[in-house]
């Protein structure tokens, strides 16, 4: 058995519109090992959530996977039918979204929602499923779960609700969890609790986690490796240590410089001029070239690609081969 839980190869997602086909993801390749947290970071519109949705088979039509492959522990899942995908989702892949209120049904007790999911994906009976639900709530750190299991979602605080959503994602002991901005709606002190919980679960159960977020700080403290996305492509991929301390892509470098620091003061924050291109106006060559101070001729004509680790930047790629 291989230790690679998720492998995405050359994924391309398109949205046909009246004015032409928009490419939302272009040649995205990544993999996650057992017990590893891969951070996917980028600004709004970079395609980070889209990557998560494509893996979960939740692209909204007319969006479609137009190329590439998605493999889950040796099984190809992007070609599965909707019905087969329903078993994978919630079964082999758990999902955590930003807003815990929309992931939970407000009309049902959290215990019933957990029991339903557990029974859908396992052979457990009613009593056993309830015992399992209690165990899960305890595991995600809900105090006195026997008193809380019959409460409704609105009776929980934001942080506690997100814990319930994590318990829900864990119901069928998934191989992979896709967590899309799981801490963005929470206060900093609660955010630290939730990321610590994710790390702990990942370590203890060997679950692979894809952590999608805009927050570099969360990535720095939680992920093992990180993929930086820009305009539907992966701009840089590497260990957190490398990407945070020694960014090689000019975009990553600019992104790091624009985050106000907790150490030392600067009169001005570093700025990246301009903004991310819209999907219908992605420039030729490297998508970052109009904003890049180092862009050369090749950057304006040819798309730089990375295979595995490194920066998708002609300067870095050519520097490496010289």
């Amino acid at each position: 058995m291989t230790d690679t839980v998720l492998e995405v190869r050359d994924l391309r997602v398109e949205f046909p519109t009246r004015t032409g086909i928009l490419t939302a993801l272009d040649g995205v390749s990544l993999s996650i090992q057992r017990g590893e947290i891969l951070g996917v970071v980028g600004e709004s519109g970079a395609g980070k959530s889209m990557t998560g949705l494509a893996i979960l088979g939740l692209l909204e039509p007319p969006g479609r996977i137009a190329g590439g492959e998605i493999w889950l522990s040796g099984d190809r899942i992007d070609t599965l039918s909707e019905r087969e995908m329903e078993n994978v989702r919630g079964g082999r892949i758990g999902a955590i979204f930003q807003d815990p209120l929309t992931s939970l049904n407000p009309l049902f007790r959290v215990g019933d929602q957990l029991v339903e999911t557990i029974r859908l994906h396992t052979d457990l009976g009613k009593e056993q499923a309830r015992a399992r639900a209690l165990e899960l709530l305890r595991e995600v750190g809900i105090p006195a779960p026997e008193n809380r299991i019959d409460a409704y979602p609105h009776q929980f605080s934001g942080g506690m609700r997100q814990r319930v959503v994590i318990a829900l994602a864990l119901c069928a002991e998934p191989e992979l969890i896709v967590a899309d901005e799981p801490t963005t709606a929470l206060d900093v002190s609660i955010q630290a609790q939730i990321t610590a919980l994710l790390r702990q679960l990942c370590r203890e159960r060997g679950t692979a986690v894809m952590l999608v977020t805009h927050d570099m700080g969360v990535i720095a403290e939680t992920a093992d490796r990180v993929a930086v996305m820009y305009a539907g492509r992966i701009a840089e991929m590497g260990t957190v240590e490398d990407v945070v301390r020694r960014p090689r892509h000019p975009y990553t470098e600019g992104l790091m410089g624009s985050i106000p620091s907790m150490h030392g003061d600067v009169a001005e924050l570093q700025m990246i001029p301009g903004s991310m291109p819209r999907l219908d106006a992605i420039p030729q060559g490297c998508a970052f070239n109009p904003r890049c101070a180092h862009a050369g001729t090749r950057c304006r004509t040819e798309v730089p690609r990375i295979n595995g680790t490194g920066a998708a930047c002609w300067l870095a790629l050519e520097g490496a081969t010289e």
């Binding site: 609660i190 955010q191 570099m216 969360v218 403290e221 907790m262």
Partner: peptide, 24 residues
Amino acid sequence: RMLLETIPDLKVPNRDRKPMGGEV
């Protein structure tokens, strides 16, 4: 002090922090 400790730090990430318990 608690707020300052819980802010993720890019330069010196604290990956094994003991998060502050409780909620507001």
